[in-house]
Design a protein around this nucleic acid. Structure first.
Lengths: 337, 337
DNA sequence: CAAGTAATCCGAAACGTTTCGGAAAAGTGA
DNA sequence: TCACTTTTCCGAAACGTTTCGGATTACTTG
């Protein structure tokens, strides 16, 4: 069906070796035969068979993008941009991206190494994993170049890109404190996720720095989604009516919290200030616009690809920290005593 | 490095033929040698080299997911779910998904056929294309099994899954009419997209059916995004202050319109009813919750994969219509005279 | 003109599979 | 025991590339 190198060789009256060398721009092929070969290749609409190529080159130019929890509802707000960034950058660097959705459950059914080996990935980017997910350990122990997103690890073949969650959370809380708030609730993500502990750390740090005692009753764990934020807020507020501000570990939870506030008759930001985390696009749009800690997800994707290519080039893994940025909008307000 | 079939053959003391046959569960291999081979394979953590396999089998078990405009802002609200559906279903049917972002521009740089040939896709799902995009024609003319999303075409190797935009738009407008509205604005998507013409058709149909004259000044074209909806509404409303309802060809534009309404001092739905299209997740959440025409994007992804596999099985392409559903929420209201 | 060098080319092996066409060994029935 | 089948195995070719190691031819240069 499709034209092969043999067809070209036959038509050009040369050996397949010469065709291969011409097509790959090697030096020792005559200018004229080169031209002839290129012309025939064009004419036959020749495209090299990648399977054959990969086989002999032992390189697929494909990176596996393994995403755990790809299909969780609302996941798109965060991971989509990462995917786009990866996709763009990979294309730029001449790599293809093979998308593989997985889950904590499925990770138990097929090992990370098997998953990758079977597909001959040159390297893989692993995202969406939670603490305790098998693939984290397995990736670190395998010799497949891998960059893990969101989990700070570094080995010979394994790097990571993570946001500075501690400082992000810190600046969120500091912002609220700067606005005069002292009773600050914290709706964190689920415990099994690495970022949650860091964000808690940042929360506590900011409190400490400002001489505000940490109160365990002020923090709740939810699932990063709207409903979770909504429920958590209701519970937290009923036990701590003195609170005037809440820091949410995701924008979606922040919206959930905000809706619940309105439902309960509190105005945002007049009665209660709310700050989110992520900087998803609707924060710029839905009123009141959400003050948040913005993560450049697109750039995270780009960085991941770049790091992976460094690993492929032989360098050791490291941790790339991305600093999130405080974006002040309408959902936080100076506290009036 | 990685174990090959040869290694197993050597260890088991049999030929590679036998190993291959055992691994592929052929019948003519002795029960005991079979067991021995399987055991050694496990022990060596053998995974077949897919490049070699693809080469001889002339089949990659990979489908190309070619998405034009993957990286457009806010695109995630729609396409993400489609991707997830495709991903899940492909995995279920034992196919891998290779993601390729493209654009109208890039389509001019490399032909659809070359793009696919180079990667040895078994088949392709093409999404996000606009009328006039080169890949539509090229896909239809190539012999690569392809399903196109959103463009109703059908050839021997080419099918499509599309939503019934006409009836979707019709029921949106009918809903507004049922609520007593007669002056109904329409903020459509850009003209270059296929769905836009169908939605306009549905809009007009509903008007006609109810004896309402069509007014060209009532319809504007925008870019499917928030800002577009916002601008379009302002312009439309300033010229047609008698309007009491607006139908938007995307939820995002509906939100843009809604924001602008609020800004202009109109209440939604009290002063103006708004209905969107798509049913993205925030329509359930952001107040007032948006009445909309819901498209099951996940199911569209699944259907696309299923159709592609039918094409791969040798059947002819056809058009799969998905019916969108009217979901009545808070942004539309009975008109009080 | 001889000898050395540069420019072009090619044969064959290799990559890791699958599979065709048989061959050897073992079992069957008379 | 013989002729036949069945069971179990294997050699070799093929898939479409790349590349090593040389071979041929043409060009220099003194």
């Amino acid at each position: 069906m499709a034209a092969t190198i043999k067809d070209i060789a036959k038509m050009a009256g040369v050996s397949i070796t010469t065709v291969s060398r011409a097509l790959n721009n090697h030096t020792d092929v005559n200018r004229n035969t080169y031209k002839k070969i290129i012309k025939i290749a064009k004419q036959l609409n020749y495209q090299p068979n990648s399977s054959a190529r990969n086989l002999v080159l032992k390189k697929t130019n494909t990176i596996g993008l393994v995403i755990s929890g790809l299909t969780t509802r609302s996941g798109h707000h965060f991971i989509y941009d990462v995917i786009c960034g990866i996709n763009e950058q990979a294309k730029l660097r001449n790599y293809d991206v093979l998308l593989i959705g997985t889950s904590t459950q499925q990770q138990k059914e097929i090992s990370f190494k098997d998953l990758c080996l079977k597909r001959n990935f040159d390297g893989v980017i692993l995202a969406g994993v939670r603490t305790g997910d098998p693939y984290i350990e397995q990736a670190m122990q395998s010799d497949i170049p891998t960059v893990i997103m969101g989990v700070p690890v570094a080995t010979a073949f394994c790097g990571s890109v993570v946001t500075e969650d501690v400082s992000g959370a810190f600046s969120a809380v500091q912002h609220l404190i700067d606005f005069g708030h002292r009773h600050i609730l914290f709706i964190n993500g689920h415990k099994e996720t690495v970022v949650s502990q860091f964000r808690l750390e940042g929360y506590i740090k900011a409190l400490n720095k400002n001489g505000i005692p940490y109160n365990d009753n002020y923090v709740a764990h939810a699932n990063f989604e709207i409903e979770g934020g909504s429920q958590a807020l209701e519970s937290l507020l009923s036990h701590n009516p003195e609170a005037t501000a809440v820091f949410c570990a995701s924008d979606l939870m922040a919206y959930g919290a905000m809706m619940k506030c309105m439902e309960l008759g509190f105005k945002v930001p007049d009665d209660i200030s709310i700050i989110g985390f992520d900087g998803i696009d609707i924060t710029e749009i839905v009123k009141p616009c959400l003050t948040t800690i913005y993560q450049d997800r697109w750039q995270m994707g780009i960085s991941a690809v770049n790091m992976l290519l460094e690993l492929l080039g032989g360098s050791e893994g490291y941790i790339r920290f991305m600093s999130p940025k405080l974006v002040i909008r309408e959902s936080t307000k100076m506290l009036i005593k």
